[in-house]
Design a protein around this nucleic acid. Structure first.
Length: 581
RNA sequence: GCACCCAUAGCUCAGCUGGAUAGAGCGCUGCCCUCCGAAGGCAGAGGUCUGAGGUUCGAAUCCUCAUGGGUGCGCCA
């Protein structure tokens, strides 16, 4: 139930009536007519720009349209007053019963209050993390994991049919490097001295893989050439790393619907099929690329390559899909992978990348556009860098020493709930500072705590009501008499609740789950201010001693707030706290 | 050199398909509390939304250019 959508419908009906009686000309486009909360609460509960938007097409003065619209809307029982203001806004004040209705709707619908049907059940594929299977996930991956997961939940809540997917880069050269690294650990397990050269991975996490290999094959691979062991070790190592990654994701509560292997595209004709599809559209050709201007690589020499004509679909230069030795470039399997997603019938694709893949966006969009003939939109979200701090001091990571901070380090230190919430308190394309001490602070400046505390306070009140023998199940509270809900702090809270369904749609439309986190902070803030007001005005306290009926009315609002906080946190993947310690 | 992202209060950041006097936290100033709902509360000051043009009834928001910062740029994924 979205009150703003309901009132917008009322406005549109009134506009239709005005067209019917000849006040307005026929055939007006309502697309830009909006009903939204005004910035200033003094302007009323809702405002519509209808008069200003329609003034030009109707060839009328905004004021005249607004006056006529106000007269029509006066008939609506939900609308207490409608007055024209400013350049032509129509400010609406709603009947007090509307806010009581919101509280009831929350209690009756529970976590479903706020769900939207804007997705219309469309199939969306959200691809995220997709880290190379060469080691444990680090902080950068963590942000992508949290962001992608929350986005997927948000879209699900907004009525989309969502698939969470991880693309395993197990077909390229980097898994060969992984295999060689494991092989070194294997030799080490046999007592040999080894050095990690040629970009091999020195991390400790491969020691046990090397030992496991020794346990399985004994000394069969010792002093043998790569042809003997590479494929076997690669498969084993990749599997071990994916197991590691699955466990890491599990620590964060991330559960993928599907892991898609790049390797499964090779030798199965899938890459060829995707490229053939582009070939059939005349988008594959052999040619020579210009060197990049301003920064010519030292070993540059013109070469003929097989190219994808991505410039036909918005890219800046055409991109190579095949190396000079006839092998595919990394781009070719990526094309095939997206071709596979398209052929699985998705209406919308979303890729979550790290910011260092920004240069990859245009060619990927071009590929999807070409493969789907422009039918399937793809939104690529880039997650910016995470900077770690400890007590205000930057936390240095050294790749050389292998001391990079992993997802596991972060979750072990602050827990999954704090990790997730903090990662979502910034827009995805803005850099994020993560301070191990600040995120655990119990104060207003820490949004994680502030939101959790609001929920815990409501739980505490309900526990006390329980002890006092007051019925406080949602059905009972939904029937409570809310006529006494008249204080401005109470109304502000109820109004904030009414914005939840609208916020869900806005956040989902822009694929920005951080908006949920900010909304929850505002909602918590409104609950805390009502609570604080109870200090001065005992009649505003949620527990009214000796007055069970009054207490139930107060509890209705408190419980409704907790329900929405809980629903919002569920989208972020955060567990609501029952009590603070 | 080119592409993409970013620039909002002293600091860290929000700001809806373009809406009214641009918001929050911190910091600052003043007041309140110091057993009973203060892991604080209330109020206030603080802005050329990087700059210059443009579109519009209306621009922090859209377009162009400039400046400053980040990321990336043909056989690595």
């Amino acid at each position: 139930m979205n009150l703003f959508a309901d009132i917008r419908n009322a406005v549109l009906e009134a506009l239709n009536a005005l067209q019917a009686d000849g006040t307005l000309p026929e055939g007006l486009d309502y697309a830009n007519v909006a009903v939204e909360p005004p910035r200033d609460a003094g302007h009323g509960d809702m405002a519509t720009n209808a008069a200003m938007v329609l003034a030009k097409p109707a060839k009328m003065k905004p004021r005249d349209i607004a006056d006529a619209l106000a007269a029509k809307l006066a008939d609506d029982p939900r609308i207490q007053s409608a007055e024209v203001a400013g350049p032509g806004f129509l400010n609406l004040r709603l009947d007090a019963a509307a806010w009581a209705g919101i509280v009831r709707a929350v209690l009756v619908n529970g976590a479903d209050f706020g769900k939207s049907d804007m997705g219309q059940g469309q199939k969306v594929n959200v691809e995220y993390v997709s880290a190379n299977p060469t080691g444990p996930l680090h902080v950068g991956h963590t942000r992508g994991a949290v962001f992608g997961d929350a986005l997927a939940s948000l879209l699900d809540y907004a009525g989309y049919d969502v698939t969470r997917e991880y693309y395993i880069n197990d077909g390229g050269a980097q898994v060969d490097v992984l295999a060689r690294s494991v092989y070194l650990r294997y030799l080490e397990a046999h007592g040999q001295e080894v050095t990690f050269e040629g970009g091999t991975y020195p991390g400790d996490y491969l020691i046990e893989v090397g030992e496991a290999l020794k346990d399985r094959v004994g000394d069969a691979y010792v002093d043998q050439p790569e042809e003997v062991w590479l494929e076997d070790v690669r498969n084993m190592a990749t599997e071990a790393m994916m197991e590691l990654i699955r466990v890491d994701l599990g620590m964060l509560g991330v559960q993928m619907d599907r892991f898609f292997s790049e390797k499964s595209l090779y030798g199965t004709g899938k890459i060829e099929a995707a490229i053939d599809s582009l070939k059939a559209k005349g988008l594959i050709y052999k040619g020579v690329l210009e060197p990049p201007k301003g920064k010519v690589p030292e070993d540059w020499e013109p070469r003929e390559q097989t190219l994808f004509k991505s410039t036909d679909h918005g890219d800046d230069v055409d991109r190579p899909i095949m190396k000079s030795d006839g092998a595919w470039t990394y781009f070719a399997p990526d094309i095939a992978y997206h071709y596979d997603k398209i052929s699985r019938g998705y209406d919308l694709l979303i890729d979550v990348f790290g910011a260092d893949h920004g240069g990859y966006v245009k060619r990927m969009k071009a590929a999807v556009s070409a493969l789907s003939d422009g039918r399937v939109p793809v939104d690529i979200k880039l997650c910016q860098l995470v900077k770690l701090f400890k007590d205000g001091e930057p936390f240095k990571m050294s790749k050389r020493a292998g001391t990079f901070i992993t997802l596991r380090d972060v979750v072990d230190e602050v827990g999954p709930d704090v990790t997730r919430f903090v990662m979502l308190t910034r827009k995805n394309d803005a850099p994020l500072d993560f301070d191990f001490d600040k995120v655990l602070e119990q104060s207003r400046e820490n949004p994680v705590f502030y939101v959790q505390y609001a929920h815990a306070r409501v739980c505490s009140v309900l526990r006390k009501a329980n002890a006092a023998g007051i019925a406080h199940d949602d059905a009972t509270l939904a029937d409570a008499d809310l006529a006494g809900m008249t204080d401005e702090a109470e109304l502000a809270l109820a109004k904030k609740l009414s914005e939840w369904p609208r916020l869900v749609e806005i956040a989902a439309r822009s694929n920005e789950p951080h908006r949920v986190a900010f909304y929850l902070y505002e909602l918590a803030s409104d609950l805390h201010s009502l609570w604080n007001r109870g200090n001065d005005k005992p009649e505003l306290r949620f527990l009214q001693e000796g007055k069970p009926a009054e207490t139930q009315s107060k509890l209705a609002l408190a419980r409704a707030t907790a329900v929405v906080i809980s629903a919002g946190l569920a989208i972020l993947g955060v567990t609501p706290a029952e009590e603070m310690r």
